[in-house]
């Protein structure tokens, strides 16, 4: 898989048009190359390293946020995902089970959150089987993911580190108030993440 990078993103059309999905939520207007470049941006990956976001202790820090996201939006699954260049890491989650929980993440080419991170915008999928960017994703075709809403976690230095997202196995209509609530929780998650910055830690 790594030795043939173009295959990793075959599910992403070379140019993403039209700019709006049928349901009305924006589709990231990014090429597959732009998505790859954003995920591989060295300063972004360095920010993830500097904040030590792959440390297991992050789970306890962010667990409350992911739990509340699922419960408040009425969906079965929520994840705080840190998106790397080769994979997404589930820093904390609620409602995940099976192989996804055991693996602790997925290869990046299956990550819905990569679009959230690359665009630095909310990414909403109301029916994954009809959404151009994800309908051929194995998480949809094999594991039955049907809906998704993700908000980017953008650090104080402007880097999109990952996403706070909710998922479900049925098609779902997201209301604006759902996204407003998810944004508020994402803001809370970023504040917790920023508390890990070395200078902040030293000041405590």
């Amino acid at each position: 898989m790594f030795s043939t990078p173009p295959e990793q993103h075959d599910a992403v059309p070379p140019d993403i048009f039209p700019p709006r999905a049928a349901a009305g939520y924006p589709v990231p207007a990014l090429t597959a190359q732009q998505v790859n470049d954003a995920l591989r941006h060295q300063a972004r990956l360095q920010e993830i390293t500097d904040l030590d976001l792959l440390n297991p202790d992050v789970q306890a820090l962010l667990q409350s946020v992911s739990t509340r996201a699922a419960k408040e939006l009425g969906l079965p699954i929520s994840v705080v995902s840190i998106v790397l260049d080769e994979a997404q890491h589930f820093a904390s989650s609620y409602g995940l089970g099976g192989w996804l929980e055991e693996a602790g993440g997925t290869p990046v080419e299956w990550s819905f959150c990569r679009f959230t991170v690359a665009s630095q915008e909310a990414f909403v999928v109301e029916d994954a089987t009809r959404h151009r960017l994800v309908r051929n994703n194995p998480l949809v075709e094999v594991d039955g993911v049907r809906c998704y809403a993700g908000i980017p976690l953008i650090s104080s230095r402007g880097f999109a580190l990952g996403s706070l997202c909710v998922l479900g196995t049925d098609a779902h209509s997201f209301r604006e108030e759902d996204l407003t609530r998810l944004r508020a929780l994402a803001t809370e998650a970023v504040a917790l993440i920023e508390s890990r910055r070395p200078s902040t830690k030293g000041a405590r």
Partner: peptide, 16 residues
């Protein structure tokens, strides 16, 4: 450091 960040992505791919 960055080697650990890279390795985490590789670990997840292999674990998957």
């Amino acid at each position: 450091g960055h080697l650990a960040t890279c390795a985490k992505g590789l670990r997840i791919r292999l674990m998957t």
